[in-house]
């Protein structure tokens, strides 16, 4: 598995960045102001060969947010991003037979379909949850990214399924002053301060056939997308890669050193890389254990003692203290959604 880092030129400028540029230009923003600090020129985008780093893409997003200075920028961008024009993965997505297939494709090809914020899937008997991991260190752009990504998936599903799917939207940030934008673009099932950026839907919608799918074309596109992915040899961002490694061994205690061994790099290199992405080991590790604990509470309905035991805490008091540190609240006030 090869990961990409924040300063690696891995995002084709004519993919997602071009959607953002089109949106900004259509609102009368000047090219040079939009692309300030990104090392990008419009002619490069048109040439279709340039790649930019996640860092520069994030800068472009910040510039657009600042210059457009309207609360609907993230939602408008979200409506344009998927299924997109990002090669075979986009084609496969637009021929997805149902929601299940679309989400599987989205997760498998997340490096090309959603390079900055990685979608991940988890489900139980009743619900499916698509949650997002910041894979390149979004920093202050985090809320913007969460709005964009969730709008992207909701708008794509609406377009491909031909109906309004009853998603629940969870956001880790507090309710913003422009709630009406969320309501107009996403709907009324909104939950803020939810500890996680996620969207949840009942499983019955997973296998309902979608009208636009063409099965043969879709299968060929899926095969091509896998070939393309193999040739690019990049599956996930650095932070998501670490998240996945830690999550797989969530029951075992982990440390910076053990993680460095797993990655095959020295602890000081790992520390430097984490710092470059605007975070540190404890923050990522806490996030992983918080997500696991929430899943166990919400989906499996485990008790405090069981969750503490699962995560390797020796007593519940310790666990409660840790949980308070991760989330800012005690476990008992987190009620399941349904």
């Amino acid at each position: 598995m090869i990961w990409y880092e924040r300063d690696q030129r891995c995002i084709p400028a004519h993919h997602q960045p071009a959607c953002l540029i089109d949106l900004a230009l259509s609102r009368g923003i000047e090219q040079h102001r939009l692309m300030r600090g990104t090392g990008l020129f419009y002619d490069d985008v048109l040439a279709g060969q340039t790649r930019i780093s996640p860092e520069h893409f994030l800068r472009l997003l910040q510039n657009a947010e600042h210059l457009l200075s309207a609360p609907d920028t993230s939602f408008l961008l979200g409506q344009r991003l998927l299924p997109g024009h990002y090669g075979a993965a986009s084609l496969a997505l637009s021929h997805a037979a149902n929601l299940q297939e679309a989400l599987d494709l989205l997760v498998r090809h997340r490096a090309s379909l959603s390079p900055l914020f990685a979608p991940r899937l988890v489900h139980d008997e009743q619900y499916l949850c698509l949650y997002w991991i910041d894979s390149c260190g979004a920093g202050t752009t985090r809320r913007f990214m969460a709005e964009t990504c969730q709008t992207t998936v909701a708008a794509m599903c609406r377009w491909l399924s031909g109906e309004h799917l009853p998603w629940h939207f969870l956001f880790s940030h507090a309710q913003p002053s422009y709630l009406e934008q969320y309501q107009a673009h996403l709907g009324n099932q909104l939950h803020f301060n939810a500890q996680i950026d996620a969207m949840i839907i009942a499983r019955e919608y997973l296998i309902k056939p979608w009208p636009r799918a063409q099965s043969t074309a879709g299968r060929i596109a899926q095969r091509d997308a896998l070939t393309e992915q193999a040739s690019q040899a990049m599956e996930q961002g650095f932070l998501e890669h670490i998240y996945a490694l830690l999550q797989a061994d969530a029951r075992q205690p982990a440390s910076l050193e053990s993680l460095a061994v797993q990655l095959g790099i020295s602890p000081s290199t790992l520390k430097r890389k984490l710092h470059k992405h605007g975070t540190h080991f404890q923050a990522v590790y806490d996030q992983v254990r918080k997500h696991v604990a929430l899943y166990l509470y919400w989906s499996r309905g485990l008790t405090n003692e069981e969750v503490a035991d699962y995560l390797g805490f020796h007593d519940t008091t310790n666990f409660r203290r840790a949980f308070k540190r991760w989330t800012g609240c005690v476990p008992s006030i987190l009620k399941p959604l349904a």
Binding site: P71, D72, F75, Y178, E180, Q181, Q183, A184, H185
Partner: peptide, 10 residues
């Protein structure tokens, strides 16, 4: 009367 744009197409 007063007309405002709330958000999006609303």
């Amino acid at each position: 009367d007063l007309l405002c744009r709330l958000a999006g197409d609303r």
